[in-house]
Every structure is written in C-alpha cells, then in structure tokens.
C-alpha cells in the first residue's frame, strides 16, 4: 500500500520570539500540523538565505522563516537587517524562477502561540495542495 504523501516543512525560527511562541503553542495544547521541523537560531539575522536554499535542496517542500516583530528584536536590530536581506534575496529568487509561494516569512512573538499554530497549519495545508517541490528534489537527485 502506498503511503499518502505529506509535505515536509522546515521552520527557521529565532530563539527569543518565535521559538518561545512555538513553545507556548505546545504548553497551551494548541493543535498544529506535525509536518513542521523547527530549527532554532539565535536571531532572524542569523538565518542566512543559504539556509532556505539548503532546506529546499535537501527535500523540504516548504520553508517558514519567522522571528521577532520589528522593534522587538533581542539584539535590537537583527530582524531589521534580516528584512533587508530577504527583500533582496526574494527579488533574486523571483527572477530565477524559484517558487516563492513555498517560502513564508512571518513575525511571530513569544506571546503569539496561536498565531504560530495557525501559521504552521495554514502553510502545511497550502503546500499539501501544491504537491512536492519536485524541481528542487530533481536537482538533488541529479547531483548524486
């Protein structure tokens, strides 16, 4: 019997806001899709655009990048720097034809457990409808 395909979502989150938000979602017993793999980083500023590429190449069907709201950054300016980086990175990926509907950016604070749970579920549902990201999986296979 063939197993039903389920999307793999990688979430890069910052230690101080979104990770705590995810923690809150857990302790508050909010249900959210189990497809997400959370990777904790010190700050949104640490989430190098290479992380997103690597995730997609290593089999992720969708990526979530999330951190503190503007003005809330634990290091004051990490998320502002990250925002500029991602403005440029998205422009680049758009022109390369990478499917940006699969990469979701969000601000999610430590108190927004419910927002995090909703975000993960919504992204998972969306990616499930879109199907596996074969273009990048193909790259990986060709590279073997």
């Amino acid at each position: 019997m063939e197993e039903k395909w389920e999307p793999t979502i990688i979430a890069f989150v910052c230690n101080w806001c979104t990770y705590a938000g995810a923690d809150l979602a857990g302790t508050s017993r909010f249900k959210y899709a189990p497809n997400v793999r959370i990777i904790k980083t010190p700050c949104t500023g640490r989430i190098d655009p290479m992380f997103i590429l690597s995730a997609l190449e290593r089999g992720a069907d969708g990526v979530i990048v999330s951190g503190c709201h503007p003005n809330d950054c634990h290091y004051n300016e990490g998320n502002f720097n990250a925002r500029r980086k991602y403005i440029m990175f998205r422009a680049l990926l758009t022109q390369l034809g990478v499917d940006l509907d699969r990469v979701t950016f969000a601000w999610c604070s430590a108190s927004e457990g419910i927002k995090f749970a909703g975000l993960v579920t919504e992204v998972t549902d969306r990616i499930r409808k879109m199907g596996p990201y074969t273009e990048f999986k193909q790259l990986n296979q060709d590279a073997r």
């Binding site: 003005n71 502002f80 720097n81 925002r83 500029r84 403005i87 950016f105």
Partner: peptide, 16 residues
C-alpha cells in the same frame, strides 16, 4: 552600502 544598514520603516509586503 544598502545591505549594511537598515531603516526601521523599510517597506516590504511579504512578511506576515
């Protein structure tokens, strides 16, 4: 260089 600085009100429309 623009990627070494930031403005607090940098405009984008993709972050939720």
């Amino acid at each position: 260089p623009p990627l070494t600085v930031f403005e607090k009100d940098d405009h984008e429309n993709f972050i939720r």
